[in-house]
Design a protein around this nucleic acid. Structure first.
Length: 268
DNA sequence: AACCAGGTACCTA
DNA sequence: TAGGTACATGGT
């Protein structure tokens, strides 16, 4: 069982999620009474965030052998886990650019403390990511004080302001194709190809993205394929050709594998 | 003690 | 167009 605080239109709801193996289903517990509309909104959000509607069978059938088979087999049943909004995903991805994940997590937490909310529930502190409105109201120095570099502070606040001004409709991208999303986001300062790929994958749940420049992915590939050097971005794209149309899932499983490996290393 | 980190924009030639 | 560099700081 784990807990999350989720922002609906009307309020923030705390949910407890557990997996019921017998029914192959998720059990959701809610901390407050919800109207029919809120229940519907929450359900849609949960289905999206945990990719519950995706059938992984064809993915597994495509990787019955080869170097990826063991790490995929080991994680059978693992679905994509997405952020609760495209906005949250985009800002977190920008924060994570070039930084080791632990420092990136620290910066995320500081942003939540400054502009978002932290809900206390059963002794846990559950983060709620801030709205664009709240971030747009900050000044660059506010984020610099949290040890964001100047440029990153500008990217994050400027993008939030575009949304508030109605010049950028991030959540409206949900219905768009990958190409359309790329065209809309790439011109914005602070957003490069890797960032858009991450948003398509971890914000929108598109099944066939390969953030080939990603250092974690490159490390994971070097490890799984027993290469003596990290593959270049181009080499990753070339290799990834054969993973179509499930490159997002390969990416996700490789990230999970490399994270697990790091944890093991720490324990030794 | 360097060097790298789930990149990107910016500067120079 | 191409190639080098700053960024802000924690981890190894």
């Amino acid at each position: 069982m784990f807990y999350r605080a989720i922002r609906l239109c009307s309020s923030v709801v705390v949910i407890g999620v557990s997996y019921l193996p017998k029914d192959h289903a998720l059990h959701i517990e809610v901390n407050q009474h919800l109207t029919k509309e809120e229940q519907q909104e929450l359900l849609t959000c949960i289905k999206h965030m945990w990719s519950t509607e995706v059938d992984l069978t064809p993915f597994y059938n495509q990787f019955t052998d080869g170097p990826l088979q063991p790490i995929i087999q080991k994680r059978k049943g693992l679905h994509l886990v997405l952020d609760s909004s495209i906005y949250e995903c985009l800002i977190k991805t920008i924060i994570g650019q070039q930084l080791n994940i632990s420092f990136a997590a620290t910066l995320e937490q500081r942003l939540v403390q400054l502009a978002g909310e932290e809900i206390n529930y059963k002794g846990m502190c559950l983060p709620v990511f801030p709205d664009p409105e709240k971030v747009a109201s900050l000044c660059y120095e506010d984020l610099q004080k949290l040890q964001f570099n100047r440029r990153k502070a500008e990217y994050i606040i400027d993008i939030s302001r575009l949304i508030v001004e109605g010049k950028l409709d991030l959540e409206g991208l949900m219905g768009c194709s990958e190409e359309e999303v790329m065209e809309k986001l790439l011109p914005l300062r602070g957003i490069g190809r890797w960032t858009v790929e991450c948003v398509l994958l971890f914000g929108m749940g598109k099944p066939d993205l390969l953030p080939a420049a990603d250092i974690g992915l490159r490390n994971a590939i070097a490890h799984v394929f027993e290469l003596d050097q990290k593959p270049s971005e181009e080499e990753v794209r070339k290799l990834g050709e054969q993973w179509k149309p499930y490159r997002s899932y390969v990416t996700f499983y490789l990230w999970d594998a490399i994270t697990e490996q790091k944890i093991k290393k720490k324990q030794i």
